[in-house]
Design a protein around this nucleic acid. Structure first.
Length: 193
DNA sequence: AGTTGGATGGTCT
DNA sequence: GACCATCCAACTG
């Protein structure tokens, strides 16, 4: 279990940074589905990324979960990280052993710092697309913050890795981080609003 | 602190 | 056939 400390919003077909810019396809169709649905895609041939559909049915929008601050189940998250590497094509036993060492020494705040690492830590892959993340009985689910949790320090910045979209989409302050968390993947300040 | 290049494969024009 | 909502190691200064 962990706390989501970094999100990016992708809203509408006109958002040139969003997968929805192509209209509905086999890959992105769930973005038009019910809010709370998981959308998981593969980037750069290697990393899965978890998104949560956010708008009512018919409007394509999702939040990319870019970083999670681990709270419990940290050893399971380390296992997830190592299993993700195990699935690679050219994974020699030596490289695997080195990775195991590295992941074991990783501070908790770095286990799920980055969208590809979030999916790896929680053992999420594309087969999870379509899951209802609001179902309280689901093993993978969203839960509201609990009273007494450290209050977040919200900061909005531009989205990361979307230069291909061009302005104004590259500049929209649609990345939300909790600046109080050490588990944020990119810049914590640089607010645009 | 910042830049560069390699890994790796699905998706779309 | 080009592009890509990434990550890490290996450089440079």
């Amino acid at each position: 279990m962990g706390r989501i400390v970094e999100l990016e919003a992708y809203i509408g077909e006109d958002d040139r940074a969003s997968h929805a810019r192509f209209g509905p396809t086999d890959r992105n169709r769930v973005m038009w589905g019910r809010p709370g649905t998981a959308y998981v895609y593969l980037v750069y041939g290697m990393y899965d990324c978890l998104n949560v559909v956010t708008e009512p049915e018919g409007r394509p929008a999702a939040l990319l979960v870019r970083a999670v601050e681990p709270i419990t189940g940290i050893e399971a998250m380390r296992m997830g990280r190592m299993n993700a590497v195990r699935g690679r094509r050219r994974a020699t036993p030596e490289a695997l052993e080195a990775e195991r060492d590295r992941v074991e020494r990783l501070p908790a705040a770095r286990i799920a710092r980055g969208p590809g690492l979030v999916a790896a830590a929680f053992s999420i892959d594309r087969s999870h697309t379509g899951l209802d993340l609001l179902d309280p009985s689901s093993p993978l689910r969203l839960e509201p913050a609990v009273a007494g949790d450290r209050p977040p320090q919200p900061v909005w910045t531009a989205r990361i890795g979307v230069d291909y979209a061009g302005p104004p989409w590259t500049d929209r302050p649609w990345r939300l981080v909790d600046a109080s968390s050490p588990a944020v993947s990119g810049p914590r300040a640089r607010a645009t609003a």
